[in-house]
């Protein structure tokens, strides 16, 4: 077993926030569903099913909140979470530019940033791996499979 021990557990506050979000999601679904029209049993409307599911979410969110003290399966958010934020940022940029400048440059850049800054690999290795990976993706997806992803070359 190489499973590392779990990071510090979060308190009841995290669970309460989660439960609140679940209730909000369910409530929004119910509101949207009612707007769509619920219909009747012989002619069910488009909103009937989402309304039922949304109501279930509200109830379940309530149950979760009521049991917030007993649940210990959540982890505390710590400063290392900033890494995740940074990684997400690079991917958001990837999505934003891929349609405009093709996938090659964003792919090299994303790989390089993850390797060098998030992974603390050496400059040389980061450069080699990111360029090689991009070339491999190009050959595989554009060359062999004929995928129509926006590309420069």
């Amino acid at each position: 077993m190489t499973e590392p021990e779990r990071p510090p557990a979060a308190g009841a506050a995290t669970t309460l926030v989660t439960a609140a979000l679940v209730v909000v999601l369910g409530g929004a679904a119910v509101a949207g569903a009612l707007n769509l029209g619920v219909g009747s049993a012989s002619a069910p409307g488009p909103g009937m099913w989402p309304a039922l599911v949304g109501a279930a979410l509200v109830v379940l969110g309530g149950v979760l909140a009521a049991r917030a003290r007993g649940t210990e399966d959540a982890e505390r958010f710590t400063r290392t979470g900033l890494l995740v934020l940074a990684a997400t940022g690079t991917m958001v940029v990837f999505v934003a530019v891929v349609g405009v400048i093709g996938f090659e440059i964003p792919t090299v850049s994303l790989a390089f940033v993850w390797l060098r800054f998030l992974g603390r690999e050496s400059w040389r290795l980061s450069a080699i791996v990111s360029v090689a990976a991009t070339a491999a993706f190009y050959l595989l997806f554009v060359g062999a499979l004929g995928v129509t992803i926006p590309h420069l070359f």
Binding site: M91, V95, T107, V129, F141, I149, P150
Partner: peptide, 29 residues
Amino acid sequence: AILAPITALITLIGAYTVRNDVFDIGLVV
């Protein structure tokens, strides 16, 4: 550290191939 970016990129590009839509890459993220 090396496997992570490669897997992430395969995931992003792979998502595009399903419907040929950049929007789906956004969904994966």
